[in-house]
Nucleic acid binder design. Structure first.
Lengths: 340, 340
DNA sequence: TCGATTCCGCGAATCGGTTCGACAGAACAT
DNA sequence: ATGTTCTGTCGAACCGATTCGCGGAATCGA
């Protein structure tokens, strides 16, 4: 059922139906009523492809996610959910594209086939060819995360550098002298994953500033890796009394590793991290952490993207989240080897 | 850059460019080479909307997910990931639509606006108006889950009835006499969530068959609810020695509740469930469970959908997964009040 | 050498919308 | 009565691809 059919049954021309629907020109109430009656009866909706073709926009945004094979973390999932939600509120549809590895056909299809009006890019690296690709194509886009030259694009991001520094200061304030940073998985950090590098940098600076001794390790994004990682850390660095981490998926395993080693949290050992609130609260003991407002950020990213689509030459905008640390149950005064 | 531009620069007509690209009519190698050269130089890709309009298909499938506000379980997430992955392999894009609650505009847009060639529906209820809506619209669709009249549509599903029955039999074999079923959250079950009801049914039959005493409760889909639920169960039914559950998100909390009550798993108390393998293995102790092949199922759903799109009048096909129970560390012989 | 066949490429129609220019008729001012 | 302004509607062009029918040139067989 197309617009011609509606027009015929309502006894008007196709253009009149179009104007009645879009309201871009006045149509008499009587005509409008007749058209609406036919539309309701037939359940007509304009064909999205035809409209996209003529209007030059698709009312769809692309969301580029890490390939599904590598499991999404809870935080990433929250980003996806909040982006989809915010887009739906703005009457935009969301086209999903796994990128990286073998799936780059999907990314290309979306970008050069003009399937979307704009793109939200997740899991951005310090040097990211997709950013170059998008900029070259002229398609509006917003990053969740930023590259090494952040002024060149619009983004929302978490200030891991500041947050991890805060974590270290928090631990130092509690008297801890030997602390470790547990990063995300080694491959990710190796290919230039921004949060990993920025967390390192924040950790190093804060450790130096407070005169602490610090170790850094990468750790797979799951509980088993977390456990193994902690066990190895304890074996190699017996003096450690605290961990700061951005690897939320591994925290449960870290708890397990500590408990196996006979260390109670927070009595004997402290952990502080960066994580989504509901995740931190669900752990046992609840994790003292900077609460990443992941759902807000997804919504904010959509908002930025809508603005960029509406006004491409406008200057880039950024949003760097640095939420305060919420004290929960996982940090306490240093005991083991600390100043007692 | 459209097909006309390519044609002009290559010195041929637009139709020749089209035929060179699709291969639907022979084009001389020399002409083909010239066209390809221009295309490579300009980085041209056909406009997806124009193609969709003419061809009558979008090369896109819709994936209808529960609204983002209610967090996706790990298993649901795995479905989504595997669907996206499988679709990408078939060169299909995936349009995400949160449905239910306030977001039904999105669902309507996708269905009646002909934005997609077919739909995969998640979180299906025993009576589901979306199924009626889709059937009425004539759009091909496949369910992950099934309604009360499963022969009317194509679907893949997990045989919760059989699986929970197996769980009960497994517990009975170990000597447990008093067992509980922990279901998904009460709202979901109340609105006719199929797995919830089928699990109940399987539980009741198996309990009756083995002459056990059984209690059933609903429980929120998170660790805290799991803990609260177990604590209440223990308070009210001190004779319980085992739990069967389909609520994977709550299992970690159940462990906590048991441990607080001084009950060790599996020595004093057994838990068996239905969950994704990596999830079951990540728990501590690892959960004895029927390993749901969620990624396979997503891929299978895509496969069924592709077939339905290609051949709509073909008979419906179904795929019911009933994986065996993998023995891990969370079940053992009955102790408390059992035959010692 | 003449027709038949094959090979290649062109022009035009088409998909289903939106949008622009034109215009009839009513309302209003002069 | 004449000109002007509005209102409401129509017809046609257009977006960028695909596809059908047609025809010119080359090849083939007789």
């Amino acid at each position: 059922m197309n617009i011609g059919e509606i027009a015929k049954r309502a006894g008007v021309s196709r253009s009149t139906v179009s104007y009645a629907l879009t309201g871009k020109r006045p149509v008499s109430v009587e005509t409008k009523r007749r058209i609406q009656a036919v539309i309701d009866e037939l359940g007509y909706r304009p064909n999205a492809a035809a409209r996209a073709l003529k209007e030059g926009r698709t009312r769809t945004i692309g969301l580029v996610i890490p390939p599904a094979s590598q499991r999404l973390t809870d935080m990433q999932l929250t980003f996806v959910a909040s982006v989809v939600d915010a887009a739906a509120r703005a009457d935009l549809d969301v086209l999903l594209s796994p990128s990286g590895g073998e799936h780059d056909r999907s990314f290309e299809r979306i970008v050069t086939g003009r399937r979307v009006d704009g793109v939200i890019l997740m899991e951005i690296r310090l040097e990211d060819e997709r950013v170059a690709r998008l900029r070259h194509s002229g398609l509006p886009f917003v990053g969740i995360g930023r590259t090494r030259r952040p002024e060149e694009m619009s983004w929302v991001d978490i200030d891991y550098e500041t947050l991890i520094a805060r974590c270290v200061h928090h631990l130092a304030d509690l008297g801890h002298r030997h602390v470790a940073l547990i990063n995300r998985n080694a491959e990710l950090v190796a290919v230039g994953y921004g949060p990993g590098h920025r967390a390192q940098s924040g950790f190093e600076h804060a450790v130096a500033e407070r005169g602490l001794s610090g170790v850094q390790v990468c750790c797979g994004d799951d509980a088993q890796s977390g456990q193994a990682c902690v066990e190895e850390l304890l074996a190699r660095h017996g003096e450690l009394t605290a961990i700061a981490t951005i690897n939320e998926a591994a925290v449960a395993g870290m708890y397990r590793g500590l408990s196996r080693a006979g260390l109670a949290v927070p009595r004997d050992f402290s952990i502080v991290g960066v994580a989504a609130r509901h995740w931190a609260e669900n752990l046992h003991p609840p994790l003292t952490a900077a609460d990443v407002p992941a759902d807000e950020m997804g919504a904010r990213a959509v908002e930025l993207l809508i603005q960029r689509i509406a006004d491409p030459p406008a200057p880039h905008r950024h949003h760097l989240a640095a939420p305060p640390i919420s004290l929960r149950g996982s940090t306490g005064p240093a005991r083991r080897g600390g100043p007692a």
